[in-house]
Amino acid sequence: MSQLPEQPAEGPVPTSADVARLAGVSRATVSYVLNNNAAVRISDPTRRRVREAAAELGYVPHAAARSLRAGHSRMVLLPTGNFPSGQLHHRFLHELESGLRRLDYTVVQYGSLGLDADDAARAWAELRPAAVIVPGSVPLAPRGTAVLRRSGAKAVITLGPRPVAGAHALIMDQRKVGDCAVRHLLERGRRRIGVVMPEEPGLALFAEPRLAGARQAAAGTARIEPLPLRHDEESATALAARWRLLGLDAVFAYDDVYAMLLMRALQDTGITVPGETAVVGADDLMLGRLLRPRLSSVRMELDTVQSLADLVDRLVRHPGREPERHDLLSARAVHRESS
């Protein structure tokens, strides 16, 4: 009868005491070095010796034990939600994650779909994060903020168009995007302006404020027509087929992706861009510049005095302050051939 080959027995799990013996230092020194404790002066050769010993033994600090001692972790929890596609939010997440890593935090994304506001907050609190950054598409109530603070979270931060009582707020006011797009069209003499409202789940959080900004810019001077649109060719073709009946001479198409979809359908129907209809998107994607006509767009920037990671770190290191509000979003129109 055939037998499976014997598997080599795994050795014992290395401990900080093993690292200390190999490096010739105390366990406290190992802890200071591997936890990047800057409050204790340790020479560079000693730091190198400790790290080399840890690497040789395959030792890593026990995050749960460290969290138990401190009452919280170096974890920044980022519940997953619906972010609008585009360069701005990719830049935001990259800057945040890389900056927090530089400051010795670990960013952990947490799937929160299907959880209501109270259940989500309790689930996050179980992990004892140092901070939680909650996107606007993920539910958070003042009760949840209190639960997180009682569990040891030093900072609860919301990211989106609206603040939540008791939490710090990073505001990305999407009204600025719609306002900027419509002002650009008004300057070019357009007075009957459609505004695309994506029908995809989760995007209303961003589309509705953009529509509100468009209406604010056009108040008393132009007509604003909301245009429901799915992100598929059939929906765009159907909208283009009744375009002339709508009597519109311009469209703010929510973002560049929807703008490209709709502009192609309008052109296929025989509607000239920008002759009969001017088109403006948002995000200023490189692909939009390759179209003919080149796509006008709203470029969005993060408008911060300090880096996002430094801001989060300051809120963690100084808990208990009154909630802060930071407006992050600035917008400007980029005029090209489509408008």
Rank of each mutant, 00 (worst) to 15 (best):
A217M: 04
P8N: 03
R230N: 12
S338V: 08
L186S: 06
E324S: 14
D179P: 00
E225A: 15
H168E: 07
D179F: 03
R150H: 13
P161S: 15
G86C: 04
D310G: 11
V280Q: 06
R91Q: 12
T15P: 05
V334W: 00
P139N: 02
V108Y: 01
R191S: 15
L185C: 11
R192G: 05
G288M: 03
S43I: 00
D313S: 13
A54W: 02
S2N: 06
L140F: 05
P5D: 11
R48A: 12
A55Y: 01
G99Q: 09
V25N: 15
A333P: 04
D256N: 12
T106E: 08
L302E: 03
L170H: 07
A141G: 00
H168D: 14
P293F: 02
L227C: 13
Y105M: 06
S296M: 02
D313C: 08
L4G: 11
A259S: 14
A253F: 04
G189T: 14
A123V: 08
A278S: 14
E200Q: 12
L227P: 04
R215P: 05
S31E: 07
M263Q: 10
A123Q: 10
A125E: 05
R149W: 04
V147F: 03
R41N: 11
I157R: 10
G71R: 07
G86W: 01
N35Y: 03
E225G: 06
D104K: 09
L96C: 07
R21D: 10
A207Q: 07
E322F: 07
Q87L: 06
I171V: 13
V19I: 12
L113R: 13
H335A: 10
F92M: 10
P198L: 14
L245Q: 15
R210C: 12
H94Q: 12
A253V: 03
A63P: 00
A212P: 02
I42A: 01
A55P: 01
L261S: 12
D284M: 03
R21F: 02
L100F: 07
H184V: 00
V182F: 03
S16Q: 14
H184L: 01
D44Q: 14
V76D: 08
F92L: 15
V251D: 04
A236K: 07
V134F: 04
A63I: 03
A217N: 09
L291D: 00
A217C: 07
L22I: 02
M197P: 02
D179T: 03
L57A: 11
L93V: 13
T269R: 15
L246K: 06
R191C: 12
R336P: 06
V257Q: 14
A38Y: 04
P45A: 06
L248P: 05
V334A: 00
E337T: 03
A9F: 01
S112K: 01
A165C: 02
L148E: 13
E225D: 14
L148H: 08
A141Q: 04
D179Y: 08
D44T: 15
L308N: 09
S330R: 10
D303F: 00
V156W: 07
L248C: 10
G144C: 04
R41T: 12
E301L: 00
R48N: 08
R299K: 13
R325G: 14
D104A: 11
N82R: 15
L248I: 11
R183C: 02
A125H: 09
L34F: 07
G58A: 10
L239A: 10
S296I: 03
